[in-house]
Computed example of a mutant assay.
Amino acid sequence: MKVLSTLLSLRSARATLMVVAAFGACGLTLPANATRIKEVAAIQGVRSNQLTGYGLVVGLDGTGDQTTQMPYTKQALANYLEQMGISLPATGNAAQLQLKNVAAVIITGELPAFAQPGQSIDINVSSMGNAKSLKGGTLVATPLRGADGEIYALAQGNVVIAGAGAAAGGSKVQVNHLSAGRVPRGAQVERAVPSPINEGNSITLGLNQTDFQTADKVVRAINQRMGAGTAMALDGRTVQVNAPADPGSRVRMIAEIQEMPIETSKPAAKVVINARTGSIVLNQAVTLGPCAIAHGNLSITISTTPVISQPAPFSQGQTVVAQKSDIQVKQEAGKVINMPNSPQLTDVVRALNSLGATPQDLLAILQAIKAAGAMDAELEVI
């Protein structure tokens, strides 16, 4: 029995090794830096469309627009009432309306690709007047139009505000933003946007970024799986793929293409600088060459002291209050720091930290290093 169990164990181990070898021969094991085509490219013609509209939010608790300063709110409500068959007193002058629970808003939404009539989409509601809060309000029926001016959806629903606020006696407390909210599934699609995905004898893949190497890898992966000549790169961002005329077969082909793995290439060295916030982001391809940097701080201090001139008794003079300003300029001595060669991102970060500069100072230092030719990276200011 022991001999039989040993033989069975050896056979199972041998079968396991054969399965592993078969999977390796088929190329089912993906490299660590592999990604799918759907993550680097998109099908041209499969896109969303932006929708917008102007409407009214009603049912507010006295936090609506101040009608004395927002005349278009009164005009919009008067037009809405006339559409409902309600005429205002006298000549229907909208100036007679005194509104506290109504706010004029702008509605924005995104119509997904292949959206059909009857489907629901989420919308954003933002106050365009001086309403204090949209909390508890309801958006009345509002048509949403596309860039061509046609109506593609109809919006209506309760506005959800992720915030709270209270005011009393001149004091005010507010959490988050109260003049903008969201209506989940608040718009119903009324018209579909035609898609060119089933037109012609081919489909076009558009890469997210211009890269000839990535375009070549996409073509190689498609031709290897579906046959030579199926895909062809038109430029560094566009790949044309021959597709069947049958819509079902074309959809199946697109689904297979999007799941194909390709090896990602090393990105171009880039440093992104946000001049408003002082944020600096470097990718892994950024390297520094040897250079020397001198950095010093300049501080200016302005202090103002009130000076009171008091006249002598019985001199019929007036007391005069003046301001005395004292300005001091302090400049720290800058020392020259040797920056060694930094072939890796960790070395670059360590070298920049050795300067002891603030993020705002690093903005100017990085630009100077780039101008001196000591940094092999592209600077992008956002």
Rank of each mutant, 00 (worst) to 15 (best):
T138G: 11
I43K: 00
I280M: 05
A228V: 14
A141P: 07
A90H: 01
M226P: 00
I254F: 07
A94S: 05
A164C: 05
T287E: 08
D235W: 09
K324T: 11
L379K: 10
I254H: 05
D246W: 01
L139A: 04
G149P: 00
L30W: 10
V241F: 02
K2A: 13
D211L: 04
L379H: 09
A268D: 15
R47G: 03
T73M: 02
V218D: 04
T29G: 13
L56G: 01
G229E: 06
L4K: 13
N79C: 01
N208F: 02
I337T: 15
M84N: 00
T214S: 12
V381A: 06
G334N: 02
H295M: 11
R47F: 07
R145Y: 13
E199T: 14
G53R: 09
A364D: 14
V173Q: 10
G92F: 00
T304C: 02
L10T: 04
V286L: 11
G64K: 01
V320S: 00
S265D: 14
S303G: 14
A22F: 07
M84A: 09
A131E: 12
A243E: 08
I222R: 01
E380A: 13
G118L: 05
R185I: 10
N101R: 07
T68Q: 14
V105L: 00
L355P: 07
K330I: 14
Q69D: 14
L8D: 00
N158G: 10
A41W: 01
Q66N: 15
T138F: 15
V175C: 02
M70H: 02
V175A: 12
D122L: 05
M339A: 09
L282K: 09
G24W: 13
A292P: 00
T73H: 04
P247V: 05
A357T: 07
E199F: 06
R276Y: 05
R145W: 07
T346C: 00
Q310P: 00
N49I: 05
Q188A: 06
V329G: 05
P267G: 12
V3P: 05
R252Y: 02
V57I: 11
P306M: 05
I369T: 09
Q98N: 11
L345P: 05
P184A: 12
A34I: 10
N274L: 11
G59D: 03
I107V: 15
V271G: 05
L144P: 10
A312R: 07
I123Q: 01
S303K: 15
